[in-house]
Nucleic acid binder design. Structure first.
Lengths: 149, 149
DNA sequence: TAAATAATTGAATATTATTCAACTTTATGT
DNA sequence: ACATAAAGTTGAATAATATTCAATTATTTA
């Protein structure tokens, strides 16, 4: 056994998929060359960033999902991009947004369980510049990445 | 002009992509038939729900992104799934999670601009059973769907 | 430890993406 | 309004890729 599964999951999170031109052509009843041309244009214009897989996250062992609200200290407040760039390297983080209001940043984080999340919070999120953290834990994921579960 | 672009975007949100077996095979140095077998297994097991595109949402005209926190009334509190199922039909909603804590539900919503979001909030989210709504507006999206922007 | 099941793989085939050149439509400048 | 350029559409030919199949190896189960 070569444990190809985990390697596939890692690749499919980043991309490694591609449009099904023939199927789309049939669906919207246009020649496949026309579909091809239009897709390449979207890619060239940067409108499409990647093609990737949407998972049943329970089944790939990262079923513990949280939203993390972060408040920054006054000195970090003016430069939230520094921290967000830093955080973006971590595979556990599905999304990072800099937001308005009482909080400066919201993360969507996926880990195996609460213990793994706790470690992640202590080691990655908590750092100087971060004043307060609130975690909203998902009890049930109804829809993700525009896909109903 | 046939405005194929919008049709493609709609299809790519749902799926209509497929793994690049040959590229993966080269990348992890295994025969393509082995990769094929392992991918089909993931699909059969339900671990992979779909293959879809990740967009630069500004460039496809839905650059206004919000997180919506929803509190339910005592009578709806015990059955958050009813409302979430109802909401999941709407294309503007990227994700729906039922959560712990002060709020019962969190949505990630993508619209063209604040006006379109305001209409969406009034017509779709606000309804009996929803006691309170707080909107966190994204000022900058650093990472989405595991992809750095 | 034998039998059954799951996983790996190369060769053959089927399907699909891509290229190209011709043509049509739309946009641009004077 | 008209000529010209640029963008978009398309069928035919080719290149690349996925899929099937049967044989082999590894792993699990009784």
């Amino acid at each position: 056994m070569k444990d190809i599964k985990q390697k596939l999951i890692k690749l499919f999170k980043q991309g490694y998929s591609t449009p099904q031109i023939a199927r789309i052509a049939k669906k919207i009843k246009e020649p496949s060359t026309t579909i091809h041309y239009n897709i390449k244009k979207l890619e060239k214009d940067g409108a499409i960033k990647a093609y990737n897989a949407v998972f049943d996250y329970d089944k790939i062992g990262i079923g513990y999902c949280t939203f993390v609200l972060i408040r920054l200290s006054p000195d970090e407040y003016g430069n939230p991009e520094r921290l967000s760039k830093e955080l973006s390297k971590h595979d556990e983080i599905e999304s990072i947004d800099i937001i308005t209001g009482d909080w400066e940043m919201i993360l969507k984080v996926r880990t195996k369980d609460k213990d793994e999340y706790f470690n992640f919070m202590k080691n990655v999120i908590s750092r100087k510049g971060v004043t307060k953290i609130t975690t909203l834990t998902s009890l049930k994921q109804v829809k993700t990445e525009f896909v109903n579960l």
